[in-house]
Simulated assay, not measured.
Amino acid sequence: MSELASESSAQREPAVSAALQGAGPRSTGRAPGPWGGILLVVEHFWTWYRRNWRATAVSSVLQPLLFLLAFGVGFGSLVAGTGSAAEATGGVDYLVWLAPALLAVSTVQSAAFESTYPVLSGFKWQRFYHAMAASPISPAQVALGHLVWVAAKMAGSGAIYVIVIALFGGVGSAGIVVSLLAAVLAGAAVAALVTAFSATRENEGAAFNALFRFVVIPMTLFSGTFFPVDRLPEWVQPLAFVSPLWHGTELARAAALDRWQPLAALGHLAYLVALLALGIALSTRFFARRLVR
C-alpha cells in the first residue's frame, strides 16, 4: 500500500507543479522599471501606515495644531494691537502671517523625524531595507522610495493642517495651496539630507540628539517663523539664510500673502532644489554602500 501511495504521489507532483506554474505570471527577477521599484517601497510604507496611522497622528497633526493655537491664536492676540507687530507683518493679521510658516515648520520637523530613527530601524532593528535589497529592488530605489513616501506623507498631513488653518481664519488667499507645495519641497530637502546622514549611523546615541538639539530646534526658532529674520542680530542672520526652513518659509509666506518677488522666489527655489539633489545623491550612495556587501 505504501508503494502504491508513493507512486500515486509521484504521479501527482508533475501535475501539481504544472498547475502551479500556470496559475499566475512567473517572476522576471527584475523590478518593473526604475519607478516600479520605488513604488513598491512606497507600497510597503503605505501598507504599514494605513494600519498604524494613529501612532503618528500626534506628531503629524496635533503638534502643528498646538503650535497654531499657542502662537497664532494665543500669542497673536497679545501682539495684534501693537504697532510693531503690524510693521513686522506688513499690516497683515499675525495669524495669517504665521500660518504658512507653521506649515513649513511642521513639514520640516516631520521630515527630520521620519529620516532618523525609521531609517536606522530599516538598517539595524527591523532590517526591512536589507529584505528589500535582497529582492530585485536596488538600494537606490530603496532610498528614493523612502524619500517619496516621506514627501507624500508630508503632503497629506500638510493638507489636513491647511484645513485646520482655514477653520481658524488663518488662510488669506488660495495661495496657501502653493504654500503647501513650498513646504513639502523644504521638507523633502531636509529629509534627503537627514536620510543620508542617518544611513551612515550605526547607533542612534548622541548623533540624533545633537541633530534635533543643535540643528532642528534652532532652525525652527530662527528661520523667520515667529518673527522676521531682520529682527535678529546681524551676526546671526547669515545662519538663518543657510537654513532650508527659512527658504521654505519665505516661499510659503510669499504665496499665502501674494507678495511674490520673482528673483527672490527663484533664489529660494534654486537653493531648495540644490539641497534636495545633493541629499538624493548622498542618500543613494550611502544606501548602496550599506546594503551591498
Score class of each variant (00 low, 15 high):
residue 95 L to V: 11
residue 127 R to L: 02
residue 184 V to A: 05
residue 218 P to N: 07
residue 279 G to N: 01
residue 128 F to G: 02
residue 95 L to R: 05
residue 261 Q to C: 11
residue 97 W to N: 05
residue 42 V to Q: 00
residue 102 L to N: 01
residue 250 E to Q: 08
residue 141 Q to K: 06
residue 29 G to N: 09
residue 54 R to L: 02
residue 193 L to V: 14
residue 154 M to V: 10
residue 201 R to M: 11
residue 144 L to C: 04
residue 44 H to N: 06
residue 44 H to T: 03
residue 86 A to R: 12
residue 13 E to R: 14
residue 228 P to A: 15
residue 48 W to I: 13
residue 242 V to M: 10
residue 70 A to I: 15
residue 218 P to D: 07
residue 84 S to E: 15
residue 289 R to L: 08
residue 289 R to N: 08
residue 227 F to R: 09
residue 282 L to I: 12
residue 230 D to A: 09
residue 226 F to H: 05
residue 204 E to Q: 12
residue 202 E to V: 13
residue 288 A to Q: 08
residue 285 R to W: 01
residue 79 V to R: 02
residue 67 F to D: 00
residue 33 G to M: 08
residue 41 V to D: 00
residue 57 A to H: 13
residue 49 Y to K: 11
residue 196 A to T: 12
residue 180 L to W: 04
residue 158 G to D: 06
residue 280 I to V: 15
residue 170 G to P: 08
residue 112 A to T: 04
residue 178 V to A: 15
residue 38 I to R: 00
residue 96 V to L: 06
residue 54 R to M: 10
residue 58 V to L: 13
residue 252 A to I: 01
residue 218 P to G: 05
residue 176 I to S: 01
residue 52 N to D: 12
residue 132 M to A: 08
residue 145 G to V: 02
residue 210 A to Q: 13
residue 145 G to Y: 00
residue 84 S to Y: 14
residue 290 R to A: 11
residue 208 F to L: 12
residue 238 P to A: 09
residue 258 D to P: 07
residue 140 A to C: 12
residue 10 A to Q: 11
residue 156 G to S: 07
residue 221 L to Q: 09
residue 54 R to P: 07
residue 32 P to A: 14
residue 181 L to R: 08
residue 273 V to H: 07
residue 51 R to H: 12
residue 160 I to V: 15
residue 72 G to F: 05
residue 126 Q to Y: 15
residue 148 V to E: 04
residue 238 P to I: 11
residue 184 V to E: 06
residue 78 L to G: 09
residue 6 S to I: 05
residue 20 L to K: 03
residue 264 A to P: 04
residue 67 F to Q: 02
residue 30 R to A: 15
residue 25 P to A: 12
residue 28 T to S: 10
residue 11 Q to E: 14
residue 145 G to L: 05
residue 240 A to F: 06
residue 258 D to M: 06
residue 158 G to A: 02
residue 93 D to M: 08
residue 289 R to C: 08
residue 256 A to N: 11
residue 17 S to Q: 11
residue 55 A to K: 13
residue 38 I to H: 00
residue 74 G to K: 05
residue 229 V to Q: 07
residue 238 P to R: 12
residue 187 G to A: 10
residue 186 A to E: 04
residue 278 L to D: 06
residue 64 P to R: 06
residue 194 V to I: 13
residue 213 R to M: 11
residue 118 P to D: 07
residue 235 W to T: 13
residue 219 M to R: 05
residue 263 L to W: 03
residue 229 V to F: 03
residue 223 S to Y: 03
residue 100 P to M: 05
residue 116 T to A: 11
residue 272 L to F: 06
residue 25 P to I: 13
residue 11 Q to T: 10
residue 157 S to C: 06
residue 214 F to Q: 08
residue 167 L to E: 04
residue 289 R to V: 05
residue 108 V to N: 03
residue 217 I to E: 09
residue 104 A to R: 01
residue 104 A to C: 14
residue 146 H to F: 04
residue 174 A to P: 05
residue 291 L to A: 03
residue 264 A to E: 08
residue 129 Y to T: 04
residue 8 S to K: 14
residue 242 V to G: 03
residue 236 V to T: 14
residue 129 Y to K: 03
residue 5 A to W: 07
residue 224 G to R: 00
residue 193 L to Q: 04
residue 103 L to W: 03
residue 249 T to R: 12
